[in-house]
Nucleic acid binder design. Structure first.
Lengths: 247, 247
DNA sequence: TGCCTTGATTATCAGTCGATAATTTAGCGT
DNA sequence: ACGCTAAATTATCGACTGATAATCAAGGCA
């Protein structure tokens, strides 16, 4: 009801959005675009700050004000879940399923092609950090992703390896076999963590590192599986493949 | 000035410190004890909530009031660093140095003993969570721990393996060799992450999982090192051990 | 027993957080 | 050109954060 609220409004705008100085006329995006922008910038923010990153800082990255977020997401928690979905569920290339199961190609080459391509997709600072933040937060979506990895990658590795090695098929891989597949997965994964999370000096040729890891893994399990089949726990020596059931 | 402020005080105390109901007379600890208690409970809190865990919640766990924290630590950040120190720097058993370097024992057995004992120390929910939180926060203390692992564990594994395999000694392990050692470390580490961070069903016999991983690793690298020595990059095939220098 | 050091408490501040209600205004359809 | 829908803003709330100053009181020492 008083004169000149004009000047004050102008100043408030400048202070509120210093991140994007030039494009001041950004207004009225379609709901779809706005929502996508929120999710994308939120992924960037949460990757750096964790899910505790502020909604105001997020709004600044978009050049809008903070309450606008709540026109598109009922709560911050729901934004987080959508970020999570966009980062994880949409990055699986269906091609990989076919690749891993293609018995016309030797298992060695299948695994090399898969892991080189798969790590191209997930070995980014953003993906790895959000993955770890989500794990620490205990989101159930994270557990579901792990189960996905277990079913779509690791179980297949065991099944396909056994097939190529001429070992008898099983209904389900033994727990000890799954642990060996996880050993491979974890060993490769940690390369990405060292490089992109810790920023350490690593051997830069990622595909060569993967190839070496696969050499070690496949040579290693071939000897292990061979002995376990040959002696069938005749010795008291560790027998790997025998199932003790999952806990 | 009125009767019964007694009741109100009583209620306030109960609301403020519900964590430790019976010992209400806890007062006047020596500075040393109090400080240790703060660090220990802070480790528990930060492991669950991350370093964003509140100072009031921490005080509640101790049954004291929040400002008391600032008699022992100038700021929360400094408390975090002391927590970090107590969790990481004090858990290395000097015995492990001798164990890894003891050439009277076969490398296979040295590694098994070491990793079984080492993982007994670090495979706890608290250690793993603080380790990952610290990594995401980018604390330089974390980088220093990684370098420690690299020097005290991984370099030694390569050196000792090469010695036992009769390979010529090097001034420094090749970058590709360090990557293989990291592959082992990461593969074992991920077992702890799956169990204690994600709470997944794993094969419960940790020492057997480690033994299997070592079988695979040692068998694998023995073949790899042998071929690389035999053919010296005669083929165009990948040669592992040749150094390309660290980035 | 009474004092005095110091551990511990109460009261409080300034800043930030997620979220809500009311208001403004951009831009399409007529 | 106007008007209406809805995108975006301003203003604000209550809860919670780390931190400070002033006050209280436990317990060793005389």
């Amino acid at each position: 009801m008083t004169p000149m609220p004009r000047m004050k409004t102008e100043r408030a705008r400048k202070l509120a959005a210093p991140a994007t100085p030039p494009p001041q006329k950004q207004k009225r995006l379609s709901p779809g675009e706005r929502k996508r922008d929120f999710i994308q910038k939120a992924a960037e923010l949460f990757a750096e700050e964790g899910f505790g990153g502020g909604t105001r800082e997020l709004a600044n990255k978009l050049g809008v004000t903070q309450p606008l977020l709540y026109r598109y997401f009922p709560s911050k928690e729901e934004l987080i879940e959508e970020v999570y979905r966009s980062v994880f569920l949409d990055r699986w290339d269906p091609e990989w399923d076919a690749l891993l199961a293609d018995r016309a190609v030797p298992i060695r080459e299948r695994l090399e092609r898969f892991y080189c391509s798969y790590t191209d997709a997930i070995f980014t600072r953003q993906w790895l950090r959000i993955y770890l933040f989500a794990g620490l937060k205990g989101l159930d979506l994270n557990s579901r992703y792990i189960e996905f990895v277990q079913e779509r990658i690791l179980t297949r590795i065991i099944v396909e390896y056994r097939h190529e090695a001429g070992l008898p098929p099983q209904e389900k891989p033994a727990a000890a076999e799954m642990e060996l597949a996880w050993f491979l997965q974890g060993g490769i994964f940690y390369y990405g963590v060292r490089k992109h999370l810790y920023g350490l000096e690593v051997l830069e040729d990622k595909d060569r590192v993967i190839a070496n890891a696969l050499d070690v893994f496949l040579e290693g399990i071939s000897r292990l599986f061979a002995t376990s089949v040959r002696m069938r726990s005749a010795y008291g020596r560790r027998s790997v493949v025998r199932d003790e059931g999952a806990a």
